[in-house]
């Protein structure tokens, strides 16, 4: 292409738009449905129910250790589908670009989106691009939506946790949140820490294939972190969730960075983790299944569901701290964190 930056023309719907899509996106996202270039994608559907989700991504910075806004947008929407036990079928991709955005960056993001779609096996089947005046958006905003199929009879919900259930976490937490905050603040963190962005649908499929009946709830603890998700489950299920600080898989580098920045890792965002509430009889089997997948390699049993104490009316989360104390975990209440996803 002749110009090196995004111009308003690129969003006009005319020749420049077409050229942008044909040179940057089609080759990278190529699949038979997208290349038909129709007004909507028509997808084959199997029996069952349809899961449908959407999410917008405004993360700043757009490139960060372990990923970028494009990869995040693909994986994030796949994960939203996976948490309902859905098999993802296809994604939409809508971009809002700021005038002047470097084409080289757009190409890099298109590469990354293409890679993420290919490696997860979930194609981008429809898309749109708009350009706004300089200053009216910050570089690039991405919205993805996704559809997937849910087998009949499968119901996963935050309302289904029962006393006695086990609480599992699929791996180290806080990596994404701390990576973004550290990148923004210029804090040098250990090189083994990077965003954990990853699609979880394959791990979930493996779990459901063998243990469908013992899984009550799957949640991906993105914004608000594992604390907020656990608090939500406890509240909706009217139970007490007891977790143990010692059992929580936290990288020493993340813990250190949190100390320096005064953050509680329980509230940091994750982009490739899931919390599983399951019948405790199946907990060890589920851990083994998760650990056999790359996304769940560091999965751990982090706690148990218990009935509410007499006199307590609202579901709650109690953390047993490493020194043997206890404390309540509340949900995140509008902390002014920077844009993390």
């Amino acid at each position: 292409m002749s110009t090196k930056r995004i111009l308003l023309d690129h969003g006009s719907g005319g020749v420049a738009s077409r050229e942008l899509i044909e040179t940057i996106f089609l080759p990278r996202l190529d699949n038979p449905i997208l290349s038909r270039f129709e007004d909507s994608a028509v997808l084959p559907a199997s029996a069952g129910r349809l899961a449908f989700t959407t999410d917008s991504y405004v993360v700043d910075p757009i490139f960060f250790p372990g990923g970028d806004i494009g990869k995040l947008a693909v994986n994030g929407t796949i994960n939203d589908l996976a948490m309902q036990g859905a098999t993802p079928i296809g994604l939409s991709l809508a971009l809002i670009l700021e005038e002047g955005f470097p084409l080289a960056d757009l190409e890099r993001l298109a590469d990354s989106i293409g890679d993420a779609a290919r490696s997860s096996g979930v194609p981008v089947v429809t898309g749109d691009t708009k350009v706004v005046h300089r200053g009216k958006a910050d570089k690039i905003f991405i919205t993805t939506a996704g559809v997937g199929m849910v087998a009949d009879g499968l119901e996963l919900s935050s309302r289904l946790a029962r006393p006695g259930d086990a609480v599992l976490l699929s791996g180290f937490f806080g990596d994404h949140g701390i990576t973004i905050i550290a990148t923004r603040s210029g804090l040098a963190i250990q090189s083994d820490i990077q965003s954990d962005t990853a699609p979880l649908h394959n791990m979930v499929a493996a779990m459901l294939a063998r243990k469908e009946n013992s899984i009550r709830c799957l949640r991906d603890p993105t914004r608000g972190g594992i604390a907020t998700v656990l608090a939500e489950i406890a509240e909706k299920s009217q139970v007490q969730i007891n977790i143990s600080e010692e059992a929580l898989p936290l990288r020493p580098g993340v813990s250190t960075a949190c100390e320096l920045l005064g953050l509680d890792p329980l509230y940091l965002a994750n982009e490739g983790k899931c919390i599983v509430i399951a019948d405790s009889a199946s907990a060890q089997d589920l851990l083994a299944i998760m650990r056999a997948t790359p996304e769940g390699r560091d999965a751990a049993l982090i706690g148990r569901v218990a009935p509410l104490d007499a006199g307590v009316r609202k579901g709650r989360v109690v953390l047993r701290t490493a020194i043997g104390g206890t404390r309540l975990i509340g949900s995140l209440s509008g902390e002014p964190l920077p844009r993390i996803c």
Binding site: D264, L319, R320, T321, A322, I323, G324, G325, T326, R327
Partner: peptide, 9 residues
Amino acid sequence: IFRHGIRSL
């Protein structure tokens, strides 16, 4: 003090 549950000790 809150984070480590020190009051409970």
